[in-house]
């Protein structure tokens, strides 16, 4: 049962954030009203997405830096890199959906031409392009090499696009284009006590999700090899 503690922690933190997020005290602000509770669900998605995609890039770098050998031939780091990218994509879609609902009730429309929304759309496009790139190369080793390069390149540009560019222009989001950040006036200490555990909980959940996918992939790779050997033995 090694390594189970952080899974228990993830479940505990998520349940804590669900219960206190829906039942806890919130500041009553005009326009936002009860939708402010979405802060516990919408914002952690972006934190989790950035962490997942960051992990994807780290494994991309590890793959490139790795010396030739048995481990590299099995493409372990490359598999991790792709699966972290898929988890990141899941979180970005969830973040987009929760954000769209929130926007409908506070800004009046599901989609506005906000730089952050465009940034998100671009992030999703970048990672879809990453999967298209992977799909269009036959050779597995070449695929791993080239897609790792694109992954690193795209992640760093993405951070600039969603982290720095929206701050330069007008935006409806807090903390951009001269708007005060969430923390400065309406995130009181009661909300902080739920928000940070929610962020940590979702990040741990993302790692758990990816961990399960990695183990599944490993098993299926071993089974594939065994099947190949079996076919060779009967042919």
């Amino acid at each position: 049962m090694k390594g189970i503690w952080w899974k228990i922690l993830a479940v505990a933190l998520l349940f804590y954030s669900f219960i206190f997020g829906l039942k806890g005290d919130i500041p009553h602000l005009p326009i936002l009203r009860e939708t402010i509770r979405n802060l516990y669900f919408h914002v952690p998605m972006w934190f989790a997405m950035i962490v997942m995609m960051g992990a994807s890039m780290v494994f991309g770098i590890k793959h490139l830096a790795e010396k030739e050998g048995k481990k590299k031939a099995f493409l372990e780091n490359d598999t991790k890199s792709v699966l972290f990218a898929t988890s990141g994509l899941v979180f970005s879609v969830l973040g987009l959906l929760t954000g769209m609902l929130w926007a409908k009730f506070t800004w009046g429309a599901f989609w506005t031409n906000d730089p952050k929304l465009n940034g998100t759309a671009i992030t999703i496009l970048i990672y879809l392009a990453y999967f298209v790139l992977r799909g269009s190369i036959e050779d597995n080793e070449k695929k791993a090499q080239v897609s790792a390069v694109y992954n690193i390149f795209a992640f760093i540009l993405m951070i600039v696009f969603i982290g720095i560019l929206p701050r330069m222009t007008d935006s409806l989001h807090p903390g951009n284009g001269g708007n005060p950040a969430f923390g400065s006036y309406d995130l009181d200490n009661g909300m902080r006590g739920v928000f940070y555990p929610a962020v940590l909980g979702w990040i741990l959940f993302g790692f758990w999700l990816t961990n399960v996918k990695i183990r599944l992939k490993r098993v299926s790779k071993v089974l594939d090899k065994k099947q190949d050997k079996f076919y060779e033995s009967i042919l």
Partner: peptide, 29 residues
């Protein structure tokens, strides 16, 4: 990156559009 693939003209567009888009918006400003 795209030169490593078979359909590199199509892939070049797919890979570069999301990377160029925010750049173009800033340039337009």
């Amino acid at each position: 990156i795209a030169s490593h693939t078979d359909q590199n003209a199509t892939l070049m567009a797919i890979l570069s559009i999301p990377l160029l888009f925010p750049f173009i918006i800033t340039l337009m400003k």
